[in-house]
């Protein structure tokens, strides 16, 4: 692995993995504790529509995905909060519409069809420096906003009704959180692809949760786990010539399953009471 780092694409891949770990470690904790896994799955799959749109308009697919994903997240937020349709039904519908739009846009684009696999399942080895810069900016925005609004997001996740009564702008914060989820999805597309994004939004946070009951520590632990998962998966993918996105997810999944057996060890009390 060390000698592999002499290649720029490997250094980029490792950096991308660490940035992804920061974004999904923080936002994944909200997704898990506020039970927003399904809406996040919808947002990440719908982002495929943006990749198609990017191709169709001749701009970078990731830029297309950025704007499309934020729009999709806000539309889902409005529909699930306002319309009198059950939340999971409306998410399921928008989830599929987003993906279908992606396929239609790509079909309408003249020329050879692009490498869809790398967007659906990720390919961390083709991350460019421009991608890294965008990921860095998005991760920085996520950290900044969460540091600024930490206590509000905690109350939003815990008890929206009470937060409303004490004067927290709950709706506004919920939509902001959806935007941050969209940011995270865009950061993660390159790493694991639209279909596997949901795994990195949930597994590091869910693993971290087994060791602490403090949200801040949970976020830090989730970032740590995310870093281990992305770099471990990258290493496996390099050594065994496996698809990188899938390797990262399998490393994550296996670690999570293992954590189910070790969580009653002293580590829990130590980190938990810290």
């Amino acid at each position: 692995m060390i000698e592999a780092l002499q290649y720029e694409f490997m250094r980029n891949a490792l950096t991308a993995g660490l940035l992804a770990a920061v974004a999904c470690g923080i936002i994944g904790c909200y997704v898990v504790v506020k039970r927003m896994v399904f809406i996040s799955g919808g947002v990440s799959h719908a982002s495929f529509g943006g990749i198609g749109l990017g191709y169709f308009l001749g701009i970078s697919p990731i830029v297309g995905a950025f704007f499309f994903t934020i729009t999709a997240a806000l539309v889902m937020g409005v529909v699930t909060r306002r319309a009198k349709i059950p939340e999971d039904t409306s998410i399921g519908i928008l989830w599929a519409i987003g993906m279908a739009m992606g396929i239609i846009f790509i079909g309408l684009t003249p020329g050879f069809p692009p490498d869809l696999m790398s967007y659906l399942f990720g390919n961390i080895l083709i991350v460019t420096t421009a991608d890294i810069i965008m990921m860095l900016i998005l991760a920085a925005i996520i950290v900044f906003v969460v540091v600024l609004l930490y206590k509000e997001f905690l109350s939003l996740s815990f008890d929206e009704e009470f937060a409303t009564v004490v004067g927290v702008p709950v709706e506004w914060l919920y939509f902001l959180l959806l935007c941050l989820i969209a940011f995270t999805v865009v950061v993660l597309i390159r790493v694991v692809g639209t279909i596997l994004v949901i795994a990195l939004l949930t597994i590091p946070a869910a693993t971290a949760r087994r060791f602490t009951h403090d949200l801040k520590k949970m976020m830090l632990l989730a970032i740590l786990f995310g870093s281990l998962f992305t770099s471990g998966g990258l290493w496996l993918s390099y050594e065994l010539d496996l698809a990188s996105g899938a390797a990262i997810i399998l490393v994550s999944g296996v670690t999570f399953l293992a954590s189910l057996f070790v969580s009653r060890l002293p580590l829990m009390t130590r980190v938990g009471r810290g």
Partner: peptide
């Protein structure tokens, strides 16, 4: 109706009552 496993201490939760007085940011 909160998740019994929610990562917040008693202190964190009681402090939430102060959110309106403290203000955003």
């Amino acid at each position: 109706l909160f998740d019994r496993d929610f990562p917040a201490s008693v202190w964190d939760v009681v402090m939430m009552g102060r959110l309106g007085k403290t203000g955003l940011f």
